[in-house]
């Protein structure tokens, strides 16, 4: 057990708990990104990863007292929304052309 971990459960939730939670969410999102065959499924995984980042930011903002973390989170959410919208628009356009949603078939970048 690392020395920084408290041996008994304290009456408050430590910062590390939030960080661990965010890390777990991140890795689950990564798993989704590399595993899903459907493009929209991949996007869902990305959403999870972005979410975990936001949790991290807010936790740090709270524990350090600097409001910058919260502002950063606002920005992140905004940009994510824009990205999702346009990304899905792209997906739809590709489907119109290629008639497929399966990411395995979108390998035009093959070297």
């Amino acid at each position: 057990m690392p020395a920084s971990m408290p041996t008994a459960l304290p009456p408050y939730v430590p910062l590390h708990a939030y960080l661990v939670l965010a890390a777990v969410l991140f890795s689950i999102g990564l798993f989704g990104v590399v595993t899903r065959r459907n493009t929209i499924g991949i996007l869902l995984g990305i959403e999870l990863m972005l979410n975990s980042v936001n949790i991290n930011l807010v936790a740090f903002a709270r524990f350090s007292g600097d409001v910058a973390g919260l502002v950063f989170t606002v920005f992140t959410i905004s940009i994510t929304v824009a990205e999702v919208a346009l990304g899905l628009a792209l997906v739809i356009l590709i489907f119109r052309v290629r008639r497929t949603a399966v990411a395995d078939h979108l390998d035009l970048l093959r070297g």
Partner: peptide
């Protein structure tokens, strides 16, 4: 270079 972005991930 499979062309699949997931592999790049």
């Amino acid at each position: 270079q499979s062309g699949l972005p997931q592999d790049y991930v």
